[in-house]
């Protein structure tokens, strides 16, 4: 059961580790790491979807009847990787600005400072 579809299991485990990190950590950088892990797990999922056992890269060869992997999920995930990079970059940029204005990157401290500002 596990070894037959181990890619999918790893996807699920990574996804949960990522989500747990996002929820449990107070440090914003660690939150971003969790978020990246969460997104990366989905990349693995899509790549696994397209893979066919014994299939090669999808390059058209003349005259031969070759088995090749489905390229579409791979192309899709390329887009998602770009989105992931953009999200991480934007998140880190926000963290830099937060550090500059609040002087800390601990969520608990920031929330306390926000409460005091009221």
């Amino acid at each position: 059961m596990f070894f037959e579809h181990y890619n999918y299991w790893i996807f699920v485990i990574l996804l949960m580790i990522g989500l747990y990190t996002v929820m449990s950590r107070s440090n914003l950088i660690k939150k971003m790491i969790g978020l990246s892990l969460f997104q990366t797990a989905v990349f693995l999922f899509y790549i696994t979807l397209g893979k066919i056992e014994g299939g090669t890269a999808p390059i058209l060869m003349e005259g031969e009847d070759v088995l090749y992997s489905n390229p579409l999920p791979h192309v899709l995930i390329l887009t998602a990787i770009v989105v992931g990079v953009a999200t991480t970059a934007l998140g880190l940029a926000l963290i830099v600005r937060i550090k500059e204005t609040f002087g800390t990157i601990e969520e608990d401290d920031i929330l306390r400072m926000e409460d005091e500002q009221k």
Partner: peptide, 8 residues
């Protein structure tokens, strides 16, 4: 400045 954390 709370806008930053709201955005995050």
């Amino acid at each position: 400045r709370r806008a930053l954390f709201a955005a995050f």
